[in-house]
Simulated scan of single mutants.
Amino acid sequence: MADRITANLPSRDFTSTEAFYARLGFATRYRDDGWMILRRGSLELEFFHHPGVDKLTSWFSACIRIDDMPGLLTEWQKVGLPSDAKATPRLTGIFKHGQAPRMFALVDEDGSLLRVIDNLDAGEAA
């Protein structure tokens, strides 16, 4: 198996988190009372139970680097999440800041931010 790192994000309710991410193509790989692991192909997210996390002030985040970033966005847009900057959850379109690679963002039901970053963007620094 290749080296990897996985995100550890909070979940107020595992059942709700599991259902939200299932809509995005993730399947449950492991779940007990305090920990849950979801996987979609090579993408893996781990969640810890945190019933007190405030979705409006959460600062939890993770980066997902992917070769077909536009394709994943197109697929996730079919779920119908709002794009309003004040909505939680929400899904943005593709954007780029300065020399950073192109990306889009997903904010889940618990306020965690996932930056989905284009591996193939020529503007990315090595």
Rank of each mutant, 00 (worst) to 15 (best):
M69F: 08
T15K: 12
V107W: 02
R31K: 15
F104K: 01
Y30A: 10
G93I: 11
G34S: 13
H49E: 06
E75N: 00
N119V: 04
I66S: 00
F60Y: 06
H50R: 08
D67F: 08
V53P: 01
C63S: 11
T74V: 07
F48T: 12
P89H: 03
D13H: 14
A87M: 14
H49S: 08
M36P: 02
R31G: 02
S83N: 14
G41M: 12
V79H: 09
A7H: 05
N8C: 08
G93N: 13
S16D: 14
E124H: 08
R29H: 14
L81H: 02
K55E: 05
S61N: 05
R40N: 09
H49K: 11
D118K: 02
R90E: 06
I5A: 15
F14C: 04
L113C: 02
F104N: 03
P101M: 13
D68F: 12
P89T: 04
S11C: 06
S58Q: 05
T57C: 06
D84K: 06
D67V: 09
L38C: 03
A2P: 12
V116A: 01
M69D: 01
E46D: 13
T88C: 12
T28D: 05
Y30K: 10
Q77L: 12
V79E: 08
G41T: 13
T57M: 04
T74F: 02
R4P: 02
A19Q: 14
I5H: 11
G98M: 10
D54R: 05
G34I: 12
